[in-house]
Amino acid sequence: MTGDPSVAHDTKHAHAHPSGATYLKVAAILTIITVVEVWAYYIPALVASPLFNPSLIILSAAKFLIVVLFYMHLKYDHKLFKVLFTGPLIIAGATIVALLFLFHQLKISF
């Protein structure tokens, strides 16, 4: 918020939020992805596939991203928030991966 109302007005319009229709579409996409995930869980052939876990992680990452970009309107908001969020997210993700390697839950093959 700023002291000058006109500036406040300007900043508000600098990042127009998406409309209600976009929100509904996003919700539909999220629901579809979730349904696909759960459906895949019940197909033994898919579960047995080595691609099962990676695909699920990709799908969940996609959902994560969609919510953050649209519902948390990071896509439309100030650049600062992107930095404040992605920095820690990268460090957090790298820490998880590093820990899983260290505890041999993920293996490095040479």
Partner: peptide
């Protein structure tokens, strides 16, 4: 979203 996939589905 992350927990559901990592804990329940995988």
């Amino acid at each position: 979203i992350v927990i559901f996939t990592l804990v329940y589905l995988i």
